[in-house]
Amino acid sequence: MQELERGGDPGVAWLVAVARGASLAVNAAEASLWLVLRGGLDIAARTGAFRLGAGQWIHFDRGACPVLHAGERTVAIGMVIPADMQLQALRSPQLALFPGRGAMSALMQRLLARRWRAVAGTPVRGIQAIAADRWQMERWLRAAAGLQQGQQAQIARCPGRSLSHRRQVYARMQRALLYIEGHMDRVVRIGELAELSSMSVWYFTKTFRAVYGECPQAASVRLRLANSARLIRETPLSITEVGAASGFENNCSFSRAFRTHFGVSPSLYRNGERSVPADRANPMDRACGAVA
């Protein structure tokens, strides 16, 4: 385990890589973006716990302090963004990155990996942390912003008289959505999400529905069911254990919700009775056309 702490000039951004069984704790309070090029990456953060596969990405807001654990065959790259650069990015459509996660196209993955290596200059082995100047990082941020193409429709649905205000509200909604995704093992109370977003419960629920087209409770159920389908496919856990790990009180409620959502029981799904398409993990992916 290696810790990455902010030192020296607080305005300096870092390009970071973690690979081949290494673990990295980012203690800096800045935002960070992580891309998995190969293998799987487990992340524990204040926002929650996440499992990323090859071709997936995640962006944390300030204060998440993620701890990353790479698999033996994993190669993941990322950047730690200083506070002033993050504020500048949120004001600029060319540099904006909002909290969230999703999937990369093969073309985007190659582009970001190539630009990352152009700055780093060396192959990824274990853990690397390279300080980069502002011009290099802005160039990389401009390319990384392409990961969230299609978000303008959601931003337009946010309340606010100015575009700047709507973008701030959207960042709060994305932070809440990422919090739901980080707690797949339980039902997240709306009060938690409203407090996280610095809104009243009524205003948060209204805004969330306007942005994503579903209420927070429905998003939580959908995401937990999508996660349960992954657990059934990829792990030897029993159906009862999968239901408990997905935040359902008992096997009956889990089986009923699973059948309603996917049209087939969990047992038949495991036995391959019916091919069920993977659910999209993030409503934003519907606009981006990426399957998470």
Score class of each variant (00 low, 15 high):
residue 37 L to G: 09
residue 152 Q to K: 10
residue 2 Q to L: 14
residue 177 L to R: 10
residue 36 V to E: 03
residue 216 P to F: 13
residue 176 A to N: 07
residue 224 R to I: 06
residue 98 F to G: 00
residue 104 M to K: 03
residue 10 P to S: 07
residue 53 G to M: 09
residue 132 A to Q: 04
residue 55 G to W: 01
residue 6 R to C: 09
residue 39 G to C: 06
residue 27 N to A: 14
residue 109 Q to L: 13
residue 226 A to I: 07
residue 69 H to T: 14
residue 101 R to I: 01
residue 74 T to C: 15
residue 263 G to W: 09
residue 233 R to T: 08
residue 211 V to L: 09
residue 169 V to W: 00
residue 25 A to G: 02
residue 257 A to F: 02
residue 217 Q to D: 15
residue 63 G to C: 02
residue 141 L to P: 01
residue 259 R to E: 15
residue 284 M to L: 15
residue 286 R to V: 01
residue 99 P to I: 00
residue 201 V to W: 05
residue 43 I to V: 15
residue 36 V to F: 03
residue 27 N to Y: 09
residue 216 P to Y: 13
residue 251 N to F: 11
residue 67 V to N: 11
residue 24 L to H: 02
residue 93 P to M: 00
residue 59 H to D: 01
residue 58 I to T: 05
residue 63 G to A: 08
residue 250 N to R: 03
residue 288 C to Y: 13
residue 68 L to M: 07
residue 133 D to R: 01
residue 259 R to S: 15
residue 185 D to T: 05
residue 101 R to Q: 12
residue 38 R to W: 03
residue 41 L to T: 04
residue 281 A to D: 14
residue 20 R to T: 11
residue 48 G to F: 09
residue 142 R to D: 11
residue 73 R to P: 02
residue 115 R to Y: 04
residue 190 I to R: 15
residue 231 L to D: 10
residue 30 E to M: 10
residue 237 L to C: 10
residue 189 R to M: 13
residue 150 G to Y: 03
residue 81 I to M: 06
residue 63 G to T: 04
residue 124 V to C: 08
residue 47 T to F: 07
residue 90 L to F: 06
residue 14 W to H: 13
residue 151 Q to G: 00
residue 92 S to F: 01
residue 217 Q to K: 13
residue 95 L to V: 04
residue 123 P to G: 09
residue 53 G to K: 06
residue 253 S to W: 08
residue 19 A to E: 05
residue 46 R to G: 15
residue 33 L to Y: 00
residue 18 V to E: 03
residue 195 E to G: 11
residue 210 A to M: 08
residue 100 G to E: 03
residue 47 T to N: 11
residue 1 M to G: 13
residue 103 A to L: 05
residue 87 L to N: 15
residue 249 E to Q: 13
residue 180 I to T: 11
residue 262 F to Y: 13
residue 150 G to P: 00
residue 199 M to H: 05
residue 237 L to E: 11
residue 156 A to S: 09
residue 101 R to G: 12
residue 139 R to G: 14
residue 133 D to C: 02
residue 108 M to E: 07
residue 107 L to G: 10
residue 264 V to G: 00
residue 25 A to H: 10
residue 235 T to W: 00
residue 222 R to K: 15
residue 243 G to I: 01
residue 167 R to D: 01
residue 259 R to H: 14
residue 241 E to N: 11
residue 91 R to C: 05
residue 189 R to C: 08
residue 147 L to D: 02
residue 120 A to F: 10
residue 90 L to H: 08
residue 76 A to P: 02
residue 253 S to T: 15
residue 208 F to P: 02
residue 93 P to A: 00
residue 44 A to F: 08
residue 46 R to L: 14
residue 18 V to A: 09
residue 268 L to F: 11
residue 39 G to A: 07
residue 226 A to Q: 08
residue 53 G to N: 07
residue 226 A to E: 00
residue 251 N to I: 14
residue 103 A to K: 08
residue 21 G to Y: 07
residue 168 Q to V: 07
residue 62 R to D: 02
residue 66 P to R: 00
residue 115 R to A: 12
residue 54 A to H: 02
residue 31 A to V: 10
residue 7 G to I: 01
residue 159 P to V: 06
residue 152 Q to N: 05
residue 68 L to C: 05
residue 204 F to Q: 04
residue 37 L to N: 02
residue 2 Q to D: 11
residue 164 S to F: 07
residue 243 G to N: 07
residue 156 A to G: 06
residue 7 G to A: 09
residue 226 A to K: 06
residue 40 G to N: 08
residue 225 L to C: 03
residue 111 L to Y: 03
residue 203 Y to S: 14
residue 95 L to G: 04
residue 18 V to I: 06
residue 9 D to W: 06
